[in-house]
Nucleic acid binder design. Structure first.
Lengths: 227, 227
DNA sequence: CGGGATATTGACTCTTATCAATGCCCGTGG
DNA sequence: CCACGGGCATTGATAAGAGTCAATATCCCG
């Protein structure tokens, strides 16, 4: 069962990162050309670190992770993006992170070079791009505080609340990513993430319905733990 | 002995963060008004978290830290800024972090709201602002990898190289900040930072001339350790 | 229904934090 | 000029939190 493109685009929700940007790259707007739709299989690379950053993207369906790998295999995920989110803002430069589909994903691709190049009518777009980048910066700074100064339980509680808020504050939460991705997002190991889920379950803050389906029973408590 | 403003402005060096931006806010340029000079004592707040973000700044002398405090006192520093650096880009929104002088500092203050507001002639400035914000985002993302996936020794080695590069790749390095600030920048305790300095000294990678004066003896080795 | 990937749980280790004592540098005042 | 004092910094002993390695368990998916 597929949603229509319009329905999908309407699903942009309140997002801590740069998503829910008002970027006017929708169908036929003044500066915004229509993006090219693309499909990616599970774990397929959308762009790689070091590549030229000529495009921005909007997720139509599925989920995307933004990650960076050290030579020895250690990995850091800086962000997750779901339906409605825009990602890939690194205008005119080289990719610092790579992007991969977590689950089969459809995205719209926009050439950002032309969009952001000097010329009339691009100021509005520039303004939106700046605002989106600023939101992304803010999210990353908060992530920095999380990684530098919060313990495992606080990180996981924060993560669950972030995901729930982005999914529209429902109490039943569908996680698109495996434990390993959550771990690499939070700077933990997958075992520690699993243990923290268990602990939250023990104290009655959440309930698990399979590994990916999380029911938030006590938001207050979670928020308090997230420090 | 004071440097003239012009001499100070010329001291912008190669910077991992958003500094060395070509932001045209210098004296009398087309879009850029002259900033208002301000002085801050050691540990004085330049702006606080939650304040309105109406200004951007350029450091003339001294050093500035960008930090955020948790209610229980844990602190994260997201960036340091020295002479020539610009900071405080959070256009049109609320401050996410606060800024304080590490040592007595002089800065130029620019009202960014007018600069970035809609209107003719601001596109060039917008473009610069975007580019500066993007650089800052990149730096913060790399910091995220550091905090999430690198050990204490790797973090300290990385820190020393970062500071040395920003100071012009000299081997004799003058650190403006105390161990405590370094610790809060790297997500460590000051004791661990001190121990890592000691370890780097032991293996002959650095030499210390007092706590704040570091001589980099083996850059290669440091770079290798920074992972 | 079966099999492979993913997740949980357990035992143990290791890094870094914490708590505490000492040392060093620098400015200040006798 | 030297002694004193106060912040910083270093160093040591111990503890705690998260990592590692390994053994099941569970959940999808075909």
């Amino acid at each position: 069962m597929m949603l229509t493109p319009a329905a999908i685009l309407d699903r942009s929700h309140s997002l801590p990162g740069f998503a829910r940007s008002g970027l006017s790259v929708g169908r036929g707007s003044a500066q915004g050309p229509t993006g090219i739709p693309m499909s990616y299989a599970r774990n397929a690379e959308i762009y790689g670190e070091g590549e030229n950053a000529g495009c921005v993207y909007r997720v139509l369906s599925g989920a995307v992770r933004i990650s960076k790998l050290l030579p020895d295999g250690r990995r850091q995920i800086s962000a997750f993006h779901m339906a409605g989110d825009m990602f890939g803002f690194e205008p005119g430069d080289e990719r610092n992170f790579s992007a991969e589909a977590i689950v089969p994903a459809k995205v719209l691709v926009y050439r950002s070079q032309r969009l952001a190049s000097p010329g009339a009518k691009s100021e509005g777009f520039l303004r939106e791009l700046l605002s989106a980048t600023t939101r992304e910066l803010r999210h990353t700074q908060n992530q920095l505080l999380l990684m530098g100064r919060k313990n495992a339980l606080e990180r996981v509680a924060h993560f669950l609340l972030e995901m729930a808020d982005r999914a529209g504050k429902k109490t039943m939460l569908e996680l698109a990513m495996p434990r390993h991705d959550i771990a690499d997002y939070l700077g933990l190991t997958l075992e520690t993430v699993s243990r923290m889920f268990a602990e939250l379950k023990e104290i009655g803050a959440i309930r698990l319905h399979g590994a990916r389906r999380v029911e938030l029973l006590d938001r207050e408590r979670l928020a308090a733990m997230a420090a």
